[in-house]
Computed example of a mutant assay.
Amino acid sequence: MEAYLDPETYGPYLDLALGYTLQLLGALLIFLIGKRVAKALGNVTNKAMSKYGVDETLTKFVSSSVYFVLLVVVIMAALGQLGIETTSFMAILGAAGLAVGLALKDTLANVGAAVIILIFRPFKVGDFVEAGGATGTVESISLFTTTISPVDNRTIIVPNAAITAGNIVNFSNKPHRRVDHVVGIGYNDDLKKAKEVLYGVIRDNPRTLDEPAPLVAVSELGDSSVNFTVRAWVKSEEYWDAYFGIIEEVKLALDANGITIPYPQMDVHLDSTENEEPQA
């Protein structure tokens, strides 16, 4: 006997199964096509930002964010195709996002600070900066922290939010920096000769620049010395070599020309009258 399905008995079930099958196929197509579209848009975002020279860290972050946001939209659309009510899922996701945001507010603040740093670029990797309580060379910038290496070769990891919350001093942003020193001489020394000697030190130093012009000027008549302000411009990468070199050369030049560098002194006078015996 040939087996067959009675349309009157099994027809409604067949229609229901066919309907679910079509819904499942539709949801699967939405997911597969939507996933490819989301990935393609993420790649387009990546290429566009790279073309305009946006920092690689920010580029990866934005392109990944675009992909995952679109993927969530695709998943919601696929679930809707299956006849699943997505309103409750959206509410759950919203509540979960709020909870995660509150729990990770400091971390998200660091991410926001990283976006500011990478977009406005107050400094870049390799710059010598003072930021977030640390001073040194920037080694890396990530979404959460910035790694700074001081001159003693330590590693300081600074949260990005701490950097953007305060002042940022970039010592490498300009091609030239000014070296400032204060040099004191004795009141009995020859003022004009001392000035010529200090100018000679600046002029003969191979790291100092002729333009902008250096400066040697009397800036203060101190308690125990006549103070000169000595200023010279150097290349930014040679700043510390010039800074310490000029100090040494100033001392040697002043000694060679018989000019003293005074130091604070205190004269103590003893009053002997208090210990004298009263005369009869």
Rank of each mutant, 00 (worst) to 15 (best):
S224M: 03
T208K: 01
N227S: 13
T208R: 02
T208F: 01
K193Q: 14
E211N: 01
L221A: 00
G222S: 13
S224Y: 11
L215K: 12
F228N: 10
S224T: 07
K195T: 14
E237R: 11
W240K: 11
L191G: 01
Y243D: 12
V216S: 10
D210P: 00
R203A: 13
A194E: 04
L209A: 11
E220M: 08
V218H: 03
F244A: 07
K235G: 10
E196W: 02
V226L: 11
S236T: 15
A213E: 11
V197W: 02
D210M: 02
E248V: 12
G222N: 10
E237H: 14
Y199K: 13
L191M: 09
F228G: 08
T229P: 01
E196M: 10
E220L: 07
Y243I: 07
N227D: 11
Y243N: 15
Y243T: 07
E238A: 10
L191T: 15
D204A: 11
V226Q: 07
A217I: 09
T229Y: 00
I202Q: 03
S224N: 08
W240P: 08
L198G: 08
E196D: 13
P214I: 01
P214F: 02
R231C: 04
G245K: 06
V226T: 13
W233T: 14
P214N: 09
T208W: 03
D210E: 04
D241Y: 08
A194P: 07
R203V: 11
V234Y: 07
A242C: 06
S236D: 08
Y199R: 12
E211I: 00
R231E: 11
G200D: 14
I202L: 15
N227P: 04
G222D: 09
N205M: 03
L198D: 12
Y243V: 09
V201S: 09
V234E: 10
S219Y: 00
T208C: 04
V218Q: 09
N205V: 02
A217Q: 14
W233L: 09
L215T: 15
